[in-house]
Amino acid sequence: MRRRHHFHIDYRGHSVSVTVETGLRQVVEVLVDGKETGFATTRDDRPVTVPIELPTDPPTPASVRVTPGPGVPRCLLLVEDETDPHVMAPRLY
Score class of each variant (00 low, 15 high):
residue 31 L to D: 11
residue 36 E to Q: 14
residue 87 V to H: 11
residue 52 I to P: 00
residue 3 R to S: 09
residue 31 L to T: 04
residue 43 R to A: 14
residue 6 H to N: 07
residue 31 L to Q: 08
residue 67 T to W: 04
residue 58 P to A: 03
residue 22 T to P: 01
residue 33 D to S: 04
residue 43 R to E: 14
residue 64 V to H: 00
residue 56 T to M: 13
residue 48 V to A: 14
residue 12 R to V: 13
residue 40 A to Y: 07
residue 19 T to A: 11
residue 70 P to Y: 09
residue 24 L to V: 09
residue 58 P to L: 05
residue 63 S to K: 14
residue 59 P to F: 13
residue 62 A to H: 05
residue 45 D to N: 15
residue 3 R to M: 03
residue 33 D to P: 01
residue 37 T to K: 03
residue 45 D to C: 05
residue 23 G to W: 02
residue 3 R to P: 00
residue 74 R to C: 08
residue 56 T to D: 14
residue 52 I to S: 05
residue 16 V to T: 12
residue 55 P to V: 08
residue 53 E to P: 01
residue 32 V to C: 05
residue 40 A to D: 15
residue 5 H to L: 04
residue 5 H to C: 02
residue 45 D to S: 12
residue 44 D to Y: 13
residue 76 L to K: 08
residue 31 L to H: 15
residue 19 T to C: 09
residue 83 T to P: 02
residue 49 T to C: 08
residue 44 D to A: 14
residue 48 V to E: 12
residue 80 E to D: 15
residue 40 A to M: 08
residue 87 V to T: 15
residue 47 P to Y: 13
residue 73 P to G: 06
residue 6 H to W: 04
residue 53 E to N: 07
residue 52 I to C: 04
residue 89 A to W: 00
residue 69 G to I: 04
residue 31 L to K: 12
residue 44 D to L: 14
residue 87 V to D: 13
residue 82 E to M: 09
residue 19 T to L: 06
residue 67 T to V: 15
residue 89 A to V: 08
residue 65 R to L: 01
residue 88 M to F: 08
residue 35 K to Y: 12
residue 75 C to R: 01
residue 36 E to H: 03
residue 86 H to T: 08
residue 87 V to P: 00
residue 64 V to T: 04
residue 71 G to W: 09
residue 3 R to C: 03
residue 6 H to I: 02
residue 69 G to D: 06
residue 82 E to C: 04
residue 74 R to F: 04
residue 19 T to R: 13
residue 50 V to Q: 01
residue 82 E to G: 02
residue 75 C to L: 07
residue 13 G to I: 06
residue 2 R to G: 01
residue 43 R to Q: 13
residue 63 S to A: 15
residue 57 D to E: 14
residue 83 T to V: 15
residue 41 T to W: 10
